[in-house]
Write a protein that binds this DNA or RNA. Structure first.
Lengths: 327, 327
DNA sequence: CTGTTAGCGCGTTCAG
DNA sequence: CTGAACGCGCTAACAG
């Protein structure tokens, strides 16, 4: 384990000087700066981040908080894209990250959660797809000591920005692709009390007012299985099935095929698997990568002392073709 | 930020004693133990892991090394399952983890890589799907200071265990489901020089000897697009298309459908998307969760001073139905 | 059984 | 412009 001392010895300066060089202080002669950097390279020195963050109370990492579980299919694609976006942006900016998984937090008490992120030397947290049941994280948002960028939850505070597409508008637009006046429409909503679920529901309700059709709402919990089974039971009574997620749309479509009937269906999210199911279903394409990317920029804003804001990301209404997914 | 001192003050003992209680030392009176724990709870104290690992040179985290990119579709599902397995096992065992992404390492020099993991206070690394191009990680494996569990690469050393299914046998068996003597067989292999690609290729070659058929091998690079386009061109000359990955099988199947011909196809991996493509394609089902889970146990073995070993995980030959993926 | 002491590796004053 | 000295929060060795 080569420490800053080794570098100092090799460069014939003191440890303090090495530190200054590495931190980019200005008042260092070019001469010694060069020597130090050379020693660093020759020795392959990497600062010990534990010691570093312990010493300088400067916590600078961004914690990336991810829900990882097997309850909902295809969540992994969305998470990976969020993650890629955020990681790429952090790399561009030279910011260190820590990945934190929800199950890790579930073990902790309310208050200890703060300390936990603290001990990770994070001062900011990006929350991908905040869950309304996640008391732990919701409590954390109250702590002014951290900055947050939250995806898919309409929460704005001095230290909290939120990032998402206009769910209401998106649901309105995608549904309007398939619904005609007078249609009987079945709507599979997401999780009861979920943030996005509510907004999407408002979207379809708005469309109902504007276009006048019969609307039945079923809580689909984003579950493909529920959509599948409910569709098997009910599809023959409806002209359209509007789904608050692609996976539910896939379940509904599958059921219709099995029933041998045609019902207009729309989805929501724009995930790749839509390109494989052999049906052309209009959906809302969210650019998850960009959302993740943008979250980092929000954190930067907050760190700079700006107040939290709501960031609305663009989306597209489209069908996902096989061609588009195989690249 | 409440530190060990605060706890000590509240419990009216010294910081050292608190530390001992928390580390589960035996020679502590029940009385003070209780007091300390109470103070810990009341204050919501969480040890600062940076300080902890800095002090005790005891590095105990397991670093989980993941390739994250968008080059190959559906890698995300596999990675997530690996990850879930490893994380679950680590939680069961009370081991802390750090997640490290390949792109982070790509910035580093050879030697600094070691220091990097060091500074993360990791003494072990789990590598999911080691890439033969990844010089950085391959070099690291030479370092006896770390323990490694490597998935999908046949590397065994004192400090390196590897975990995977019997690729050779799996490819043999799944292909034998569709190939009959005298068939003309097209084989889409994985990445040239890839570890698993080679083993799978051996499997099909072995089958060729045993069953006697005409075999053409094309480097498919695990790419759905390549399989798709090559199949469009060549399918009518073959009876079977054996693919070294599910995504290639899907590409091949799609092409056959477009050509309006039937060719027997097999896949490899057992990922969920196979349940959505509407074709019943035999494949090798790997239990990625269990593989991730098992990797942690291998690390434990190595930490206990045992030598690295090859761990062969079970697999199944099966078709993935829609029913099985919607649960 | 418990308190005291001495660092872990680094960043940051403060002198010089 | 540079070096010495202190302390971040914690653990370990040593006293008592």
């Amino acid at each position: 384990m080569i420490s800053i001392k080794d570098v100092a010895a090799r460069a014939k300066v003191s440890a303090g000087t090495v530190s200054k060089v590495l931190k980019g202080y200005t008042n260092i002669s070019e001469e010694t700066k060069k020597n130090v950097m050379q020693a660093v390279n020759e020795l392959g020195y990497v600062p010990n981040s534990a010691a570093s963050t312990l010493s300088s109370k400067g916590k600078k990492k961004i914690a990336i908080y991810i829900y990882i579980n097997d309850k909902f299919q295809q969540i992994d694609e969305i998470n990976m894209l969020y993650l890629m976006g955020a990681l790429d942006r952090c790399r561009e900016l030279g910011i260190e990250t820590v990945t934190v998984y929800n199950e890790t937090l579930e073990r902790l008490q309310h208050d200890t959660c703060l300390s936990y992120f603290n001990s990770l030397s994070a001062d900011s947290v990006i929350v991908f797809g905040l869950n309304k049941d996640d008391r732990m994280m919701l409590d954390m948002l109250e702590s002014p000591r951290f900055n947050f960028a939250v995806v898919d939850a309409p929460i704005v505070k001095d230290n909290v920005s939120c990032v998402y597409i206009d769910q209401r508008k998106a649901q309105y637009e995608v549904a309007s692709q398939i619904i005609e006046t007078g249609d009987k429409v079945l709507y599979f909503s997401g999780k009861k009390n979920g943030y996005v679920s509510q907004m999407r529901l408002e979207g379809i309700r708005q469309l109902q007012k504007d276009r006048n059709f019969e609307l039945t709402v079923i809580e689909g919990e984003f579950s493909e299985a529920i959509a599948y089974h409910q569709t098997l039971k009910l599809a023959n009574q409806y002209d359209c099935i509007v789904c608050a997620s692609d996976m539910m749309a896939i379940g509904a479509k599958k059921a219709c095929k099995e029933l041998g009937i045609f019902v207009k269906i729309s989805g929501f999210d724009g995930i790749r698997v839509m390109g494989y199911v052999g049906s052309s279903i209009p959906t809302v394409r969210q650019n998850f990568y960009n959302i993740g990317y943008r979250c980092v920029d929000e954190i930067i804003r907050l760190r700079d002392g700006e107040k939290g804001q709501k960031v609305i990301m663009p989306f597209e209404i489209d069908r996902i073709s096989y061609r588009s997914v195989i690249k």
